[in-house]
């Protein structure tokens, strides 16, 4: 009887908490920051949904979370893969759930994301913003953690045969931003996202028609329709490397030699961590 009572209390508490959440949402009594980040919606809706994938589907393991600063701004720079940017979302959850300060990672997204209805709103509400200098400066100035994937679409849209090979870093704008704001760069390697939607091909005319950067063909998509959108349950590992102090070069943000040098250093660190993680994970679909 005692046990039943406790169970009921727990459920009553959950229902009460859910009802008060619904009440706050329906009456608009919540806070949204200047970028549109809705902390409450992220905590109550986005994170629980992602957590199921993170824990049960991908069995994610995280290493080196101590390398993420306790406070103050930093740029978290990672490898990008997996056809859709699920790796970015898992990285957000890894930072929030594993970090003692439960910090939020603010992602930078391509303008393509903000052109799409619904996607743009989910992006803003989950804390992402447009990858542009004014926004990054503002976030770092506020002392936020900013997540960047310098490979961009070249990373997510690459073929399965090129998995875990870092693509070009482009202009390495993230280095200039870090230097200008004297923010440390934390390299991060993500293993597992490459196998969720193995990209075999790209139907370019369809991509152009939809205004998308590419139209993916995987072993299951578009053949199985919506079922093909279920990611394969690969084993994920995320490793944060040691922060790179950018203050010695703070006044050389516009020097391409310095910028490319640092970008190469970050790139090699991530590539090295990727190889290390892959050795520890002999088979992508076995723990």
């Amino acid at each position: 009887m005692q046990e039943v009572q406790e169970v009921r209390d727990e459920w009553d508490a959950r229902v009460a908490s859910a009802l008060s959440f619904v009440r706050r949402r329906l009456t608009g009594q919540y806070e949204v920051d200047d970028f549109g980040f809705d902390t409450e919606l992220t905590d109550y809706v986005f994170h629980p949904l992602l957590r199921t994938l993170y824990k049960n589907w991908f069995r994610t393991e995280v290493f080196g979370i101590d390398n993420v600063p306790k406070e103050d701004g930093a740029l978290i720079v990672g490898n990008h893969s997996g056809t859709i940017a699920l790796d970015a979302l898992m990285l957000c959850l890894a930072v929030h759930d594993e970090h003692p300060g439960h910090r939020y990672l603010r992602l930078l997204a391509a303008d393509f994301v903000f052109r799409l209805p619904l996607v743009s709103e989910i992006a803003r509400k989950s804390g992402a913003t447009l990858a542009c200098n004014p926004d990054v400066d503002r976030l770092l100035h506020e002392g936020q953690l900013v997540g960047v994937f310098p490979e961009g679409f070249k990373g997510v849209g690459k073929r399965f045969s090129e998995r875990y090979k870092l693509q070009r870093f482009g202009r390495a704008g993230f280095v200039s931003v870090a230097l200008r704001n004297k923010a440390p760069i934390v390299p991060v390697a993500i293993v597992g996202a490459e196998e969720i939607y193995p990209l075999l091909g790209n139907i370019k005319p369809l991509a152009r028609l939809l205004g998308a950067p590419y139209f993916p063909v995987t072993p299951t998509f578009p053949w199985l329709g919506p079922l093909g959108m279920v990611p394969l349950p690969s084993k994920w590992m995320i490793e944060f490397g040691e922060p790179i102090d950018t203050t010695p070069w703070a006044d050389q943000a516009d020097d391409p030699a310095v910028v490319f040098n640092l970008a190469d250093q970050v790139r090699e660190t991530i590539q090295g961590m990727l190889h290390g993680l892959l050795e520890r994970r002999p088979d992508p679909f076995m723990d």
Partner: peptide, 8 residues
């Protein structure tokens, strides 16, 4: 959609 989040 190409504008920064906050205008100065």
């Amino acid at each position: 959609f190409r504008d920064p989040a906050v205008f100065t």
